[in-house]
């Protein structure tokens, strides 16, 4: 998990998705999620996946990273589908649901700084939860980098050898042990710093507004279209299912267009 790359994408860079209001993006994510919940049509779900990829290209997000992140739950969904689905079609629907929902979430995270993503949750949860959520994400950066350095150091000393799994496991376990002690020291240091800064049990997050109203409207309309497509297709499945192959075509056209515009 390259959290550094995720954060760089969210905070640096430009593009219409990054300049949109974080609340619009969260509402759009909820609508996309609704579309995923309603639809059991593999081709309709595939069209949503393609549309989200088009949104990533349009928003100038790192598409490769988005695909890699969305592929991670697909592996688990494959196991679940293999273990429980009655046929290949249902299995493909299960995997597509996982991938589409993950891609929706990843699109938001790749275009929004994490304090803005957590801000709405911070308002409805007890103070300790919201504050710990913000600090967890920050600590995650530090610990992942530290863990990566520990493993790299072990590899350079030939401690991680593929031919000897027991030895490799011991090295990884040692690295995690060291990381745990480092994490506790980090917590102590954080506490000291927060006390000096006058922390009284609440970290404040200022909500960011939109600098691109057109982007807000576009993502909200786009996600509404996805939800409406999902609802209509499910309501009139008997009539519409023979034409399901048409559903991915507009999404593919949008993907092609956004690629062309990005290159141009």
């Amino acid at each position: 998990m390259d959290v550094g790359a995720i954060d760089r994408s969210a905070t640096l860079g430009t593009g219409p998705l990054r300049s949109a209001d974080p609340r619009s993006k969260l509402v759009a994510l909820a609508l996309v999620l609704g579309a995923v919940l309603v639809s059991w049509n593999a081709l309709v779900l595939a069209s949503f996946t393609i549309a989200l990829l088009a949104a990533s290209v349009w928003g100038r997000l790192p598409v490769g990273l988005a695909i890699r992140l969305a592929a991670y739950p697909a592996v688990f969904a494959l196991v679940f589908a293999f273990a429980s689905a009655p046929d290949a079609m249902t299995a493909s629907v299960i995997v597509l649901k996982a991938t589409t929902a993950a891609l929706g979430a990843v699109t938001v995270v790749l275009s929004t700084p994490y304090p803005q993503v957590f801000a709405p949750l911070q308002r409805i949860t007890p103070g300790i939860v919201g504050d710990a959520m913000l600090m967890t994400y920050r600590s995650l950066f530090i610990l992942l980098e530290k863990f990566s350095n520990l493993l790299r150091a072990a590899r350079l000393r030939a401690g991680l050898a593929g031919k000897n799994p027991v030895r490799s496991a011991r090295v990884v376990f040692s690295a995690l042990g060291g990381l745990m002690l480092y994490a506790v020291d980090l917590a102590q240091r954080d506490y000291d710093i927060m006390r000096v800064r006058g922390y009284e049990g609440r970290l404040r997050t200022t909500p960011a507004g939109s600098t691109n109203r057109l982007a807000d409207v576009t993502i909200l309309v786009g996600s509404l279209v996805m939800l409406a497509t999902s609802v209509v297709w499910r309501s009139a499945a008997t009539t519409l299912n023979p034409y399901s192959w048409l559903a991915p075509l507009p999404a593919l056209a949008a993907l092609g267009l956004t690629f062309a515009l990005r290159r141009g």
Partner: peptide
């Protein structure tokens, strides 16, 4: 949790959560 010293608990809660996420 807030009945006890929150300022002390928040950093520990955060790093243990982050540690689980790393794993």
């Amino acid at each position: 949790a807030e009945r006890v010293d929150v300022r002390r608990r928040v950093p520990l809660l955060a790093v243990v959560s982050a540690l689980m996420l790393v794993a």
